[in-house]
Design a protein around this nucleic acid. Structure first.
Lengths: 208, 208
DNA sequence: CGTATCTTGTGAATGATTTCACAAGCCTTG
DNA sequence: CAAGGCTTGTGAAATCATTCACAAGATACG
């Protein structure tokens, strides 16, 4: 299979969202041009992205909304739920755990961990905060697929090493630090500081 | 001035972080190879990125840590603090407002807004949650540079329109929705759902 | 002072991604 | 059932980003 760029996957994810909107609005079909308009890209880009995985449209007609929904869900692996654990029960972890959208999109939070004894045992929307020591066992027992890292930067690499050792293959990191993962493990970073500095650059460039 | 890609700016921001670490560790100089190693890129990439803005190194010696720190701060516009407001006093807004790193990196949170009467008046780390109605006046009075959007998706575009009308030129959006901004306004998105779906794609591709 | 060693800065080459452009297919209408 | 009007799928072209490769400058050391 040929290599799919990260930006192409991002766009697919966006198209999925637009298709859900179109479905809710009662549309049966949608054109590449319409998807492009919503996504701020071009119709050729949309068709190219989709053509990486197959031919889903009808010439003259566009794409069937339910069919393309099915196809993109299949491509993105969203046909079954993924099990998620959050490490770090601070404010960010709390915000993430309560994010209702996750559940709706097929990500089920199954465990929350923290190293702070004061936090352990607290109940969080049906889940009990567990101590770090139980991480390895729980991750395996619950067959957790994805771990969200919401601990301070200094602690993040240690958490990565432990969850990777427990067999987890996908990580989403919120700590402002560059983490090392072995081959075969996928890591994505959400780095708010980086984004703010990007805004700073834009402001400074504009103002001179 | 030639166009600078977003990925180049991201990397500059990373180099800045590594330089701060190097400074804390007492290093006087650092080579492009060392910056590359920490950033997971190549030394040529580092030199190319820096060469977009000038020649800061000494052949045979690398870069002076304090000097390159100064230069990158200058490039990124981090020589003075930026004033920030958070719209949305939910859990995410709370997590962001309490994020100590912001202050340390030159982003000062000056106001928090919410539309929920139950939240208004609450004290948040020295700030009082203000009602939406005061947004326009406060943003102008406080000369807010950057607005962080931490409201539900349905409310986000309305917030954008209001803060843009109040003269704000830089936005960081956490709502899982594609927002429209006029030319001259910079928008960055942090979309956790997109990131999770990216992980899902990686997992699904690997497992077959 | 001359040689060896290191590392920068940068054109040229390569690779990746996006855009262009158009033949081909599908539906509607008369 | 033929003509007209859309819209797809996709090679080819253009643009953008990364990597290569090396001359040139700087230091260290005998």
């Amino acid at each position: 299979m040929k290599k799919i760029s990260e930006s192409a996957v991002r766009r697919l994810s966006l198209y999925l969202r637009f298709l859900q909107e179109a479905e809710a609005a009662g549309s049966d079909t949608i054109s590449s041009g319409e998807l492009a308009r919503r996504g701020g890209t071009t119709s050729a880009q949309v068709r190219k992205d989709l053509s990486l995985f197959g031919s889903f449209g009808k010439r003259g007609m566009g794409y069937s909304v339910p069919e393309l929904l099915r196809e993109i869900r299949q491509i993105l692996g969203l046909t079954r739920p993924w099990l998620v654990a959050v490490v770090g029960a601070g404010r960010l972890g709390s915000a993430l755990s309560s994010f209702r959208d996750f559940q709706a999109r097929g990500f089920e939070i199954r465990a929350v961990f923290d190293s702070d004894p004061a936090k352990i045992g607290q109940s969080w929307g049906g889940l009990t905060v567990q101590p770090d020591e139980e991480m390895d066992a729980t991750l395996r027992e619950q067959r957790v697929d994805v771990v969200i890292i919401a601990v301070p930067a200094e602690a993040a690499q240690g958490v990565v090493d432990r969850v990777v050792a427990a067999g987890v293959k996908a990580l989403l990191n919120f700590a402002p630090v560059r983490l090392r993962v072995p081959r075969g493990v996928t890591l994505r970073n959400v780095d708010v500081t980086l984004e703010l500095e990007g805004l700073s650059f834009a402001l400074a460039s504009a103002k001179g």
